[in-house]
Each structure stands twice: as structure tokens, then as C-alpha cells.
Amino acid sequence: MKLFNTKRTSLKKLTPDQIAVDIESLSVRLNQKKVLKKISMRIPAFSITSVIGQSGCGKTTLLNAMNRMNEIIPDHQTTGQIWMDGRDINQRRENVSSLRTNVGMVFQRPNPFPMSIYDNVSFGLKLQNKNNRRQLDDAVERALINAALWDEVKQRLHEPAGILSGGQQQRLMIARALALKPKILLLDEPTSALDPLATLFIEELMQSLKKHTTIVMVTHNMQQAARISDYTAFIHKGELVEFTNSDKLFTNPKRKQTEDYITGRYG
């Protein structure tokens, strides 16, 4: 297995169409506390970007900012711009529902709805009033194939999702997001609740997904970040410390804080 891919484009040389998300001086306040401070970063398309950092440093908030999930918290305030497809999603007139279908999200703990496997995957599509049975069947099958779950569940699509194992449930969550054909997939510590084998499965899946999707992943596992991501961002106390190619960041960090963190001096 090739540990480091040296052919990655440098972040500084990205052309505009290679940028999936362009974040400009993003600040977020949650419950009167400054969580993110003036973050600017350009996330390249069709790649895996890891976000690492201590607990509570704002990684998840950064992820949530990209599909405006921070708005679930009643006391929230976001300033700055996040550009996707040439528009700033932080604008008031942005359609949050359609934004979230374009920017899928998978959480740390698998959270299948108390419905059948089929209904879980088709949930997002049904919300968009896509009720044609054959189209739904096709979409569910495609999403499950893409999430490498199809062979395991094709016989029991109409059984409750709760019967699946933790790893299978997490892949079901990915399938649920993929059914909406998102351009960007946000993964919030997707493997931290899983065993090593299930983790490996998900990691392989992410590698195959990045052909069509931009993946942004929050992780606490630095080996995982180094292993599978193309780019890694290190966030410390709400500030972006370093964002560069994963191999560069893990072998030759420019900043002292990054080095301290990845060598385990804190965090």
C-alpha cells in the first residue's frame, strides 16, 4: 500500500474549478462563545480533507458551518463567507434544505431512523417528493452499492435498520447521504464508534467515493488522517494553524503547534 501520494496538487496552485469550498474569514459564535475565529481555507474538489485538532477546538463547528447545521443551536452567530458553486451559502436567501441535500453529513454515532433500511435510504428523496417507486428503488440500490452495503442488505431491505451492526449502520448512514447525490460529504468522526475492521471498510469506501465527491472529515485518529486523506487542516482553539498536503503536514509541519500536536505533546 502506498502511504503517501506525492502527485497531489499543491493547495496554492488550485485553479478555481478545482476548489469545492472556499471559506473566507469564517467566524462562528455559539452560546456567546467564540468557537471559530476568522478561518480561511480552500477545500479542493474530489479529494479527502481531514480536519484534526483537540476536542472542543471547533472542528465539528467548521464542518457544521458547511451545511449550516450550526443553526440548530438557538444561540448562534456566523460571519464570513463560504463559497460553493459560486455562491455564498451564508447568505440569508440560501435555501438551507437544498444546501443540505447537496452537502451530505454523517455523524459520529450511526443514527438510523426507526424505519426499514429502504426507508432510511429513501428518506431524503421522499422529502423532495420523489415518490416514483421505480426511481426510488434505483436510487436506493445505487446508494447502497456506492456505500458498499448492497450485497449485505439486498435480501432484507424492508427489515428495520436497527438490526444491522454498527459498521453496517455507519455505511447505511453514508448511503442515506449518498442517495441525494451530494457534491460534498461531511464526515464527523465517522469511525470513532467502530471496530478496526469496520473502520477499514469505511476508509476503503471513502477512497472509492472521492472520485465523485469531495469529502471533508473530522477525525481524532491521526494515523487515519495521514493514511487516507489528501489534505489535512489542523485547528487549534478556533484558529486554522496549518492546512496543507497530508504528507507535508505529518512529515514536515511548518508550525511548532502542529508539530507538538502530531507528536502527541498535547491533545
Binding site: M69, L99, R109, F123, G124, L127
Partner: peptide, 27 residues
């Protein structure tokens, strides 16, 4: 009703009303 389920529904593009109707009320 677990928060995770509510967030999960919202992350799939459900509005708050749709989330309540499809997830919260059944549970």
C-alpha cells in the same frame, strides 16, 4: 427522541416541520 435522529433528519434536508412529522411524532 434522540437528538442524533433529529440532526440526521435535518442533515438530509428536512425542514423542522418535516423533521417533527417524520421523526419526532412517530417516535
Amino acid at each position: 427522541v434522540p437528538d442524533g435522529l433529529k440532526k440526521g433528519a435535518m442533515a438530509l434536508g428536512a425542514t423542522k416541520y418535516e423533521m417533527i412529522r417524520n421523526i419526532v411524532l412517530p417516535i
